[in-house]
């Protein structure tokens, strides 16, 4: 079966969200096929974060629905939502590791509490996931003892341990020093190559250009443009995306 004929693994249908009196998301739709990596870019305040959080139902959308493998998330009730969230991994800009737990226990905790693994099983799996992100020797350290890049990799390991069907990444490198960005992007690239389905908000245009099949440009709560990076980013395309990225490169240098 070709990828085109497969139903999308995640469908976001006409999501709208108003916070306070401000319309943050205005009728946003997108879909992800299995193994796809799509990248959300756009100015701050454009709704990228809110969109990711709405997809995960961390903030329930006002209208529209999220369908994971054909099952809609809404109307599932609180217990159903907990189950829904387990299937989608979320990576936050500021890592959000549990400050009172070691790296190992950060990964093992949800395995034990949510998936009801035994302690030994959960720790075993945690060590494997940490090894996968290159942190096999850091399991005993607490978040405060890790660098930003290491923290973000622990949080990726924590999400991976839950065997998510889709990963949502909310600017995973924006809080990192430039020299730490590479190690995190490396892990994400590796994940993508191994077939993980991902939706990632980022300002790393170079990274997006090389790895994604589709760039989604969001502005003022709407998807302004979407398409393959070659089309959107080519200098003569005149797209809003190319314009935005040109400004980014002016600030940060090319290839970023």
């Amino acid at each position: 079966m070709s990828a085109d004929s497969m139903p999308p693994i995640l469908e976001v249908k006409n999501i709208s969200k108003t916070l306070g009196s401000k319309l943050i998301l205005d009728d946003v739709s997108l879909s992800l096929n299995k193994g796809e990596l799509k990248v959300l870019i756009g100015p701050s305040g454009g709704g990228k974060s809110t969109l990711l959080q709405c997809i995960h139902y961390l903030i329930p959308p006002d209208a529209g629905e999220v369908v994971l493998e054909g099952r809609p998330a809404s109307g599932a009730g609180r217990g159903g939502l907990c189950a829904f969230r387990q299937e989608i991994g979320m990576i936050f800009q500021d890592f959000n590791l549990f400050d009172h737990l070691t790296a190992e226990n950060n990964v093992a905790m949800a395995l034990r509490k949510v998936k009801k693994h035994s302690k030994a099983e959960a720790l075993e799996r945690a060590r494997r996931e940490l090894a996968r992100v290159g942190l096999a020797d850091k399991g005993q350290l607490y978040p405060a003892q890790l660098s930003g890049g290491q923290k973000q990799r622990v949080s990726i390991a924590r999400a991976l341990a839950m065997d998510p069907k889709v990963m949502l990444l909310d600017e995973p490198t924006s809080a990192l020093d430039p020299e730490l960005i590479g190690e995190v992007l490396g892990v994400i690239a590796e994940l993508s190559r191994s077939g993980m389905t991902m939706l990632m908000a980022t300002h790393q245009i170079g990274f997006a250009r090389n790895l994604t099949n589709e760039i989604i440009f969001m502005e003022a709560g709407k998807i302004a443009e979407a398409g393959p990076p070659a089309a959107l980013l080519s200098p003569g395309s005149g797209s809003r995306t190319a314009d935005f990225c040109a400004k980014l490169s002016e600030l940060m240098g090319p290839g970023r």
Binding site: G79, M90, D94, N96, F98, H100, M109, V114, A159, M162
Partner: peptide
Amino acid sequence: IKKGQFQAAKALGLTRAQTFRTI
């Protein structure tokens, strides 16, 4: 307690009671 701790717990599928006890 930072808001992110609650968000992370929610994102992992922990119930409110589990979040309370473990975080």
